[in-house]
Design a protein around this nucleic acid. Structure first.
Lengths: 338, 338
DNA sequence: ATGAAAGCGCTAACAA
DNA sequence: TTGTTAGCGCTTTCAT
C-alpha cells in the first residue's frame, strides 16, 4: 500500500527491495551501485515522486547548496535586493531561501543573530544578511552584509555611497536656487542616516550656506515621526519656513508630501521635496518624487557574487560600494520668488 | 572550553550539568522543571548564545510556526505578493520562509512540487505557492495557491479578476474612439492568458465591434515573441494597422513601446498601448504605461489569512477573487484622425 | 555491490 | 523533578 504522507527514502527502499543506503547512493549519484539496481531504484523514485527532505539531509551533510537571505521583513528595500540576488543566482547551482525571522517585537533587535543560529551550520551554506542592525560575531558560515546599519564591523559588506547621494540631493536643491533647505534626519543610531546627514552638511558648506540646526529634525526613517517633523517645518511663518526639504528616506518624503497637501502647500511650487532610496512607490506619488536611487539590484547581485567567492574559498573584496544617483522627477523646482 | 562551531543543546546541557532533555524542556517552556534548575539553564543558554536549530527540531516536531512561500524566482510579481504576505504575517506568530527552488532549466517545470516535497511535512506548517504551473496533488500540509496558471484544481486559491481587467482595458480604448484594437496574447496554456483574451473579446462584442482574428497575435507573455508580434502589427499599411494594442502583460506592452519607437511611431498619438500587471517598471517607461493593476499586496494578505484559517482547522473560503483595476497613464489617447 | 549500523540535534515517551 | 531512550529521514563509514 502506498504511504499516506510524504514519500520517504524508506518507502522507496521497501518498494525497490533494497536498503535505504543503496537508495541514498543512487539518488546522490554515488559509485558502488550496479547499473541494473540503480535503474530499478530510479524508476521507483520517479513512480513514487520521491524528493529527498532538505531538512533531514542537511542534518547530516556538510553542505546543501542553499543560500540563506536573512531579512527583517519583506519591505520594498529587501525585495529589490532579492530581485538582484535571484537574477544573479540563476543557473549557479544554488537555491535561495529568504527567511524573515523578526516576527514579534521582542526579537525586533538581534533577529539576524537568531536567524543565523537557527539556520546556520546545517540548512544553509552561507548567508546574505540585509540591513543588519548589530555587528555579527564570527559565525560558522560565510556571511555577506548588505547595507549594515552599524558600520562594516570586519565583515564582508556591500553598500551604496550614502554620503555622496545626499550631497547630490542637496546640491540639486542648491542649484535650483534654494537656500533654506531642511533635513528630516533618519535613525541617528544608523550608519546610513549619519552619512546622509553628513552629505547634506557638506553640500551646504561647499555652497557657503551656513548650517542651521533649526532646520534639521528627526524623522527616524519612520512615517509617523516624519509627519510630525514635516508639520513642524511647514507651519512656520513664511520667512522661517524652508523652501525645500531633503528627507532621509522616501518614507519620510512621502510624509512631507502628505503634510504639504494637508496644509494646502503645492509641491514643488511652494516647497521642494527630495527623498532617498527610490523605492517603487516613489515613481507613483503626486507629484512623482525626486529622490536618490541606490542600485539595489546590482547590490544584491554583488552580494551574491561575493558570497560565492567566499564559498569557493577564494578571497573576496571586503567592501563593495556602489554609487547612489539622483533621480530628478517632479517634486523639485526653483523656490517661490514671493 | 567553548565549542568551536554552533552551540548545540548538548553544549548547554554539559555546561549546566543537566541532561539535554531538561534543556529542551526549559527552552520550550515545558512543565516539570524545578525553578532553580530552569533558571540556571536559562542563564547558560544566554551566556552561550544558544538558539535551537530549526532543522533538528523540525525533524521531530509536528509543527514549526514557519510558513513556506514557494516561488519560482524573486521577480516583481512574486516580491509584491511577498510584501503583502509579510505585512499581514507581522505579529501573528509565524515566521516566513520564501524558497526559490527553480535553479536550473531542468526543474523549471514542477518546481512547486519539488519544493513542497523538500520542505513539506517537516520544515513548514503550510505553504503559499505563487503562480504554480501544475495542479498539485494532495499534500501533507495545507496549501494556498496564488494566481495558479492552470485553474483552481480543487485547491484554495487567490487570484485577480483577469477577465474583468481585460474588459476594462479594452473598453477604455473603445471609449477613446478606437475601433481597430489588436491583442497580443499571453501563454495560451495559462488560465490568466485565456481569461484576458476572453475579456478583450467581450468588450469588443459589447461595443458591437466585429472580432478580427488578424488582430490577435501570440506574445507568450515574453518580450522576444511580443517584439515580433508588435512588429508584424505596426508595419502593416495604414488602414490595416491597429490604432491601439492591448498587450496581455506589461512585458509584452514594453515590447510594443520599443517597436513603436524603432518604427518612428509616437505613443499615444499614432498608437495607443495598454498592458496588464502594473509591475513597478510600468510607471517608469516613456511614456508611462496605461495598464491593469492587480492588487498584489492585498492578494498576498488574503493568501496568508486563508492559510491561517486552514492551519487553525477553520474552514476557509475556497476561492478569493480580487478586482483588477485600470490605471490610466500616458500611453493611451484618441486614435489619429488622419 | 550491498546492507547494517551509527549518528546529525532535537523532542517526546517513559522510567527512575 | 530528572534522566534514559527511541527515533524523525537521511548520509556515511564499515562489514559482509
Amino acid at each position: 500500500m502506498r504511504p499516506a504522507g510524504r514519500v520517504t527514502i524508506t518507502d522507496v527502499a521497501r518498494a525497490a527491495g533494497v536498503s535505504v543506503a543503496t537508495v541514498s547512493k543512487v539518488v546522490n549519484g554515488r559509485y558502488g551501485v550496479a547499473a541494473t539496481t540503480a535503474e530499478r531504484v530510479q524508476q521507483v523514485v520517479t513512480e513514487l515522486g520521491y524528493e529527498s527532505s532538505l531538512i533531514a539531509s542537511s542534518l547530516r551533510r556538510t553542505h546543501t547548496n542553499v543560500i540563506g537571505i536573512l531579512v527583517a521583513g519583506f519591505d520594498p528595500f529587501a525585495t529589490e535586493l532579492l530581485k538582484g540576488i535571484s537574477a544573479n543566482a540563476l543557473g549557479k547551482g544554488y537555491e535561495l531561501l529568504a527567511y524573515s525571522g523578526a516576527i514579534a517585537d521582542d526579537n525586533a533587535v538581534g533577529w539576524e543573530q537568531r536567524s543565523l543560529s537557527r539556520l546556520g551550520g546545517t540548512l544553509i551554506d552561507g548567508a546574505i544578511i540585509l540591513t543588519p542592525t548589530v555587528v555579527l560575531p564570527s559565525t560558522t558560515v560565510p556571511v555577506v552584509a548588505v547595507d549594515p546599519h552599524t558600520g562594516t564591523g570586519g565583515a564582508h559588506v556591500v553598500d551604496a555611497d550614502n554620503a555622496d547621494g545626499a550631497r547630490a540631493a542637496t546640491r540639486h536643491l542648491i542649484d535650483l536656487g534654494h537656500r533654506r533647505i531642511a533635513h528630516i534626519r533618519g535613525r541617528t543610531d544608523l550608519m546610513s542616516a549619519i552619512l546622509r546627514e553628513k552629505g547634506y552638511r557638506q553640500s551646504l558648506e561647499e555652497a557657503g550656506i551656513a548650517y542651521d540646526p533649526a532646520l534639521v529634525l528627526d524623522g527616524g526613517y519612520r512615517a509617523a515621526w516624519s509627519v510630525d517633523a514635516a508639520r513642524e517645518l511647514l507651519t512656520r511663518p513664511r520667512p522661517d519656513r524652508p523652501t525645500a526639504i531633503f528627507a532621509a528616506n522616501d518614507l519620510s518624503a512621502f510624509a512631507v508630501l502628505q503634510v504639504a497637501e494637508e496644509l494646502g502647500l503645492r509641491v514643488p511650487q511652494d516647497v521642494s521635496v527630495v527623498g532617498f532610496d527610490d523605492i517603487p512607490e516613489a515613481a507613483r506619488t503626486t507629484p512623482r518624487l525626486t529622490t536618490v536611487a541606490q542600485p539595489l539590484q546590482e547590490m544584491g547581485a554583488d552580494a551574491f557574487t561575493m558570497l560565492l567567492a567566499l564559498l569557493d574559498g577564494r578571497t573576496a573584496q571586503a567592501h563593495v560600494r556602489r554609487p547612489a544617483s539622483l533621480v530628478v522627477r517632479r517634486s523639485t523646482a526653483a523656490p517661490p520668488t514671493d
